[in-house]
Amino acid sequence: MRLTGRITADSLMTLEAYARWRKVHKPEVIAHRKLRSVALGEHITVQFESELTMRYQVQEMLRIEKIFEEEGIRSEVDAYAPPVPDGANWKATMLIEYPDVNERRRELARLIGVQDRMFVEAEGHARVYAIADEDLPRDNEEKTSAVHFLRFEFPPAARAAIKAGAAVKLGCDHTNYPAHVAIGPETLASLAGDLA
């Protein structure tokens, strides 16, 4: 899989080429995704996306749905290219996970707006709050969604600090889910590589 900085229909593999590539490289992609996943408390996981994770997602959708026509390929690219970070930000999928269905229903009602209270804080810099769900709203009056899409847009000084090795924490200051965690060094090194 060739990373080009931008996912386009022309930069994707054919279904046959991807099937061969997948047999060899799928474990590497899974390890990359795991490295870029951060647990925040017991019930929220933030998966920081990259060109690799999103390119893999597009290729998987094309494979599963057996899409090979131009319009279908373009549709998948349009759906999955936006979560690729562009050098000034981190983009992520936030998952709210409660195994028990009744507890999940109750907690999703209590966590309305949680996506807007997610933040990243580089040591010595102000918190950067997530810009959430830019594609469509995922809250209503009764509950929030179990999946949200986040963008953390960093000012130049915070980007420079992160690239220089500043400690960074991921957090949430929602009334019903206050939590923060230091992003581990290996994960942080991977994420720092997303910044220009």
Results as ranks from 00 to 15, higher is better:
146 A>S: 14
110 R>Y: 03
150 L>Y: 04
96 I>A: 07
11 S>D: 14
166 A>T: 06
183 I>G: 09
23 K>E: 14
134 E>P: 01
25 H>E: 15
196 A>L: 06
117 R>V: 03
126 A>Q: 13
153 E>K: 10
12 L>D: 12
75 S>M: 10
164 A>Y: 00
24 V>F: 01
98 Y>T: 06
101 V>E: 14
189 A>I: 00
16 E>Q: 13
48 F>H: 05
13 M>Y: 04
165 G>L: 10
170 L>C: 05
55 R>E: 10
36 R>A: 08
179 A>N: 10
183 I>L: 11
192 A>E: 02
72 G>E: 10
168 V>I: 14
64 I>P: 01
75 S>G: 10
193 G>T: 07
88 A>H: 10
103 E>V: 15
108 L>H: 08
152 F>K: 08
114 V>M: 07
29 V>K: 07
184 G>V: 08
74 R>K: 15
80 Y>G: 10
182 A>W: 02
13 M>N: 05
125 H>N: 13
64 I>N: 11
40 L>H: 05
4 T>I: 02
167 A>P: 03
166 A>D: 08
86 D>H: 04
107 E>M: 15
56 Y>K: 01
186 E>H: 09
187 T>Q: 02
160 A>P: 00
186 E>R: 13
93 T>R: 14
85 P>T: 06
177 Y>G: 09
129 Y>F: 15
55 R>W: 12
13 M>I: 03
167 A>E: 14
12 L>C: 09
132 A>C: 05
56 Y>S: 02
90 W>F: 13
137 P>W: 00
159 R>W: 00
160 A>G: 05
139 D>R: 08
137 P>F: 00
80 Y>M: 13
133 D>M: 12
189 A>Q: 07
52 L>K: 14
182 A>K: 08
114 V>K: 06
15 L>E: 01
184 G>F: 01
193 G>N: 02
4 T>M: 05
190 S>K: 03
30 I>T: 12
152 F>H: 09
113 G>H: 11
114 V>L: 12
28 E>W: 03
8 T>A: 14
126 A>W: 06
54 M>V: 11
149 F>R: 15
126 A>M: 11
